[in-house]
């Protein structure tokens, strides 16, 4: 059919792929492969269950790896994020999380969760960037000391005493008792607070605290948390686009909150959190100013179940 127009033969000025270009392209692919391999778990370790979820192996090399979904042809059948509300996005994220979490290993109480979290902080002024890769080993039932790394510093957390509680809990066996129904979860977060913008803000921040690691979410809890967030008034999609571990992210935040949740633009997979912080207030020209503002993204690169502290998957 196209023969009549001469289209199939039309070559313009194209020439075959040059060996050097092929080698360069192949090297780029291998670099991306290598980058992922270095950042993700090796499989095939029998005793150690390795989770290869949405977070794992996302560290992508090469800049500019995103494909714009919206095109200037403005095609009605092409997914277009701008038409998606924050609540819809959160529900999609919940579905994606639920699907991914099917592979969550069931740990024994005497084991540890190994988590590796990547933190990237960019200062607004000057664009200076700092990164940390924190590794933590959390006792599954909280009966043994945990090793928690935060911004590079290692904390040896003893088991909680009989009258101590962590809120929200960090211990997996405690988190398992939490409701996986979004409405119940929301009620738990809202406690007895009267309906007000303050309650929305507090609830949003509490969910953020729950999602901030290191913490391993039992099946269903994370997706329930996203669905609960979808019910909070004022949740919105941030216009800023975020790059998380080389993936194109969109942020869902709430007015008044410094926190935002980051999701993959294409798959709605949960990528991590973003926080705006680091204010030091000082007087500039007779006015109190917030300075030293930074954006910090925090994403979980790996979760695995291991037998002892120090053991890596």
């Amino acid at each position: 059919m196209d023969e009549l127009t001469g289209l199939p033969e039309w070559e313009a000025d194209s020439v075959p792929l040059a060996p050097r270009a092929r080698a360069a392209a192949r090297a780029r692919l291998l670099e991306a492969i290598d980058h992922e391999t270095r950042h993700s778990a090796r499989s095939g370790l029998s005793r150690r269950l390795v989770l290869r979820g949405a977070f794992i192996g996302v560290a992508a090399a090469a800049a500019g790896v995103t494909v714009a979904l919206t095109r200037d042809g403005d095609d009605a059948s092409t997914p277009n994020l701008t038409t998606l509300s924050a609540a819809q996005l959160l529900r999609k994220a919940a579905d994606t999380t639920r699907a991914d979490r099917g592979r969550l290993p069931i740990p024994r109480d005497d084991q540890y969760f190994y988590t590796r979290t990547y933190i990237e902080r960019t200062y607004r002024k000057g664009g200076r960037r700092r990164t940390w890769t924190d590794e933590s080993w959390m006792s599954v039932d909280g009966s043994k000391p945990s090793s928690r790394q935060e911004y590079g510093k290692v904390h040896h957390d003893p088991p909680l005493g009989p009258h101590e509680v962590a809120s929200p809990p960090t211990v997996y066996s405690e988190l398992k008792k939490w409701p996986t129904d979004p409405d119940e979860l929301l009620a738990l977060f809202r406690r007895d607070m009267p309906d007000s913008p303050l309650r929305d803000m507090t609830t949003f921040s509490d969910v953020c605290l729950l999602m901030e690691g290191p913490r391993v979410m039992p099946p269903g809890l994370q997706s329930a948390a996203f669905e609960a967030l979808a019910e909070i008034r004022g949740v919105r999609i941030d216009k800023d686009e975020v790059d998380v571990l080389g993936r194109h992210g969109i942020a869902v935040s709430q007015p008044g909150s410094q926190f935002a949740f980051l999701f993959d633009r294409d798959t709605y997979a949960y990528l991590g959190t973003r926080v705006r912080g680091g204010f030091t207030t000082k007087v500039v020209d007779g006015e109190w100013r917030k300075t030293n503002v930074y954006d910090e993204t925090r994403s979980l690169q790996q979760i695995a179940v291991v037998d002892r502290i120090g053991q890596r998957p």
Partner: peptide
Amino acid sequence: HRYVARRLGVDAADDLMAETFVIAFQR
């Protein structure tokens, strides 16, 4: 490469072909 070269020319094709496979790998 040939497809992209026909659409955008060879220089762009070298780059976009490489990028295609990196993205494919990541997805």
